[in-house]
């Protein structure tokens, strides 16, 4: 491809270059940039444009009505509330796990480190089937919880549990590099100055990690809200109770209502995007405040 890039660059000769780009002594901008734009355009922008264009074949009133239906609203609420709750728990769990993996030596650390990415790589349907087996009334964990009166599989709680696995790698992987770069000298200095472990953590480590935690949180949240495969097997899918947003999309498609499906999809994407942008903004603020 790199051989291809310069030729694309010459085709798409960018003449207004000086106006919007700072000059640089480095070569190869045009080729790389043109390839980036063409690829991102074809792979990301084109299909999204199709999604954005689709809902408008309904009248705006129908569109709003379709989204504001109680069943749709309940499903969207479940997806986003479960994703939020799971992302919060994952932020805490991910922090502890990243910390342990980066700061302590223990047998099997490398393997455990590798396993963190597993939910990301495992086919969602496999994860879903495994979770339903595990938390079902006769599963390993389900049968332990049943006497306590706790039902996980086929309830909204099941959605939350499935999203715990889905979101965890995002937080761990966001935090790890920052933790790696964090100067231990700073922590040691704090401790030399008489700060105890908790104080060091709260005053020195947490502020440094918070932008990464925010990134991990928002990615886990966005991914969780859209998750379908691993949730559908364990959710129960009861309209208004345990039905998730993506299932409403599938249901609309089943009725050949492409516009309605795209409308729900677009709504979900917009909410996720808003959260991502908000956390990005918060991150920038945090970074500014944290800068010495």
């Amino acid at each position: 491809m790199v051989a291809l890039a310069p030729s694309l660059g010459t085709i798409l000769d960018v003449r207004r270059r000086a106006a919007w780009r700072e000059p640089s002594a480095l070569p190869g901008f045009r080729g790389a940039f043109a390839f980036t734009l063409v690829y991102a355009g074809l792979i990301i922008l084109l299909p999204l444009a199709a999604l954005v264009a689709r809902p408008w074949e309904h009248s705006p009133a129908d569109l709003v009505h379709g989204i504001l239906q109680p069943r749709t609203l309940a499903a969207l609420r479940l997806s986003f509330v479960a994703a939020l709750a799971a992302a919060v728990v994952n932020t805490a769990a991910g922090l502890v796990i990243a910390w342990v993996l980066n700061r302590y030596d223990f047998p099997g650390r490398r393997v455990v480190d590798a396993l963190v990415d597993l939910p990301f790589a495992l086919p969602t349907a496999v994860a879903g089937i495994a979770l339903a087996t595990l938390y079902g009334p006769n599963g390993w964990i389900g049968s332990l919880l049943a006497p306590l009166g706790v039902k996980v599989a086929f309830t909204p709680l099941g959605v939350f549990v499935a999203l715990l696995a889905v979101g965890l790698p995002f937080v761990v992987r966001a935090v790890q590099p920052v933790l790696e770069d964090l100067d231990t000298a700073l922590e040691e200095a704090a401790q030399t100055l008489g700060a105890n472990t908790l104080q060091t953590f709260a005053r020195v480590i947490l502020p440094a990690l918070s932008p990464a935690l925010l990134t991990g949180f928002s990615l886990a949240f966005a991914r969780g809200a859209g998750e379908y495969g691993s949730v559908i097997f364990i959710a129960g899918n009861m309209p208004g109770v345990s039905e998730i947003g993506p299932l409403v999309i599938v249901t609309r498609l089943e009725a050949y209502d492409y516009a309605g499906a795209a409308a729900v999809g677009l709504t979900m994407l917009a909410i996720s995007l808003a959260v991502l942008i908000a956390t990005n903004w918060a991150q920038v603020r945090l970074a500014r405040r944290g800068a010495p």
Binding site: A132, T133, A153, F154, F233, G236, P239, L247
Partner: peptide, 16 residues
């Protein structure tokens, strides 16, 4: 539980 398909329901009833 409302599974999305017939086989899903059979599995819920028989396996779970």
């Amino acid at each position: 539980v409302l599974d999305t398909g017939a086989r899903g329901s059979t599995n819920t009833f028989v396996q779970r």
